[in-house]
Design a binder for these strands. Structure first.
Lengths: 246, 246
DNA sequence: CAGTGGTCTAGACCACTGA
DNA sequence: CAGTGGTCTAGACCACTGA
């Protein structure tokens, strides 16, 4: 069977599933403006009789729409079309090695240092440590086809990754290693535009005033801070892209 | 009843729901490393007998974990712990007016122009128009407590919002207006760091070399392009923040 | 073949809202 | 009170995988 036929088979099977048909019907009405924001949508029992399916099937369609943020449901009142205003999109922060490989390019890393330091007073609270405690600190520059793409300045809580300093980061990225030893469970990040430090600018081979995309990311598991990273990208060489489509 | 008691009631009711208990059990095991990435998780029937619930209940818990990206399910094989690597987080691009108001600050906008222009060859394909077709073009600077926060350079497809030029954008933001007339159904964006144009720098009151966070967003509904916006923020005054927590 | 997930049904009890 | 959503059960048929 040709691939195209197989694909359309799978597709039509999925579309033909009753819950998917109900969901598609409601989604179509939402995007066409049939139910503007805050409008009352058909009740479960109306959909049950309209589509001739059981209530569980209708419930599944509505619950999925709710989890996608397209409708709001209130017990005792009904289902309402949501405001689509807060456009939320999935921003994926991928391992840089994979990202570069996916573009079909070569990645390599230069480790400027990876050592133990005493934790400074500034850092201690963000890493759940006490000032003076040992902390691991690495500074690595990542290259895409020999062009510096990212300067990764990272602190690691030794309790979470005791072997961190023994890893060969020309072979594995810190992100990749840390995901293996400590399942990533929570992360906060801030994205901003700014200047690199003098040291970063030198390592990246850019001017002191060249704009950079800077991501600061803090990773926590079960309230135990794992790592704090500052990722600096030359503005002209890096962009974050995303898409929103319910 | 004191609020705290009510809250814990609601919470414990939700936690006591059988599907939520199964889900919490699996989530706990995933975050603790009991099932590392690619590990085979308990089958539906195992969970059914272990928790003494019906299969539909177990299925719901597993399906929600799957939609959260925590497990992968393959028919005929089983359920596997997912790689948590691609940290995906919900990035919300909110209406700037609401965002500033939420911080308890004052927002105001200065409209530098809002007019009709012939569509350039560069723009035409991205807006689904032909070169020379009329297109709406507005340039607005947004202020937070009288400090310029964003320069919004926007093109709008006249077919989607014929009244665009009659709107008073000192009272309503273009984002807000467009969400009302055209339900936002799809958006692509790119975030990067760069320099403002000479005009933008002048309007924002920044230096030509000051780094800026630049977001380019294209909005589409049913394959009809609605609007293309370039949002320039002085780097020192704006950041995007987000969180990941399954 | 036995075991897996994908989906559905027809019924049930409940909590909640507003009239 | 009638109507809404929140959740569950016990059973069913199916497609798929690997032995």
């Amino acid at each position: 069977m040709p691939p195209s036929a197989a694909a359309s088979d799978a597709e039509s099977r999925a579309t033909r599933a009753p819950y998917a048909r109900v969901k598609a019907f409601l989604k179509q009405g939402l995007s066409s403006g049939r139910w503007p924001p805050d409008a009352l949508m058909p009740s479960e029992s109306e959909l049950v009789s309209q589509f001739g399916v059981s209530r569980m099937t209708v419930t599944r369609a509505l619950r999925e729409l709710q989890s996608e943020g397209l409708v709001t449901r209130v017990q005792g009142l009904g289902t309402y079309a949501a405001h689509l205003a807060p456009v939320s999109s999935t921003l994926t922060i991928r391992d840089l090695h994979d990202e570069i490989a996916a573009r079909g390019h070569r990645h390599h890393a230069v480790v400027h240092f990876a050592r133990e330091e005493p934790c400074t007073a500034m850092l201690a609270p963000r890493l759940g440590l006490t000032t003076g405690d040992p902390v691991f600190h690495s500074l690595i520059v990542h290259y895409e086809n020999d062009i510096a793409l990212q300067c990764e300045d990272r602190y690691v809580n030794p309790a979470c990754a005791p072997d961190y300093l023994t890893v060969d980061f020309t072979q594995t990225t810190p992100t990749h290693y840390l995901l293996e030893v400590a399942p990533l469970w929570e992360a906060q990040y801030a994205i901003e535009s700014g200047n690199a430090t003098a040291q970063e600018a030198r390592l990246l081979g850019i001017g002191a005033r060249d704009p950079c995309l800077i991501i600061v990311r803090r990773t926590v598991n079960h309230n135990v801070p794992i790592t704090l990273a500052r990722l600096v990208h030359p503005g002209a060489r890096y962009r974050l892209e995303g898409q929103f489509s319910p």
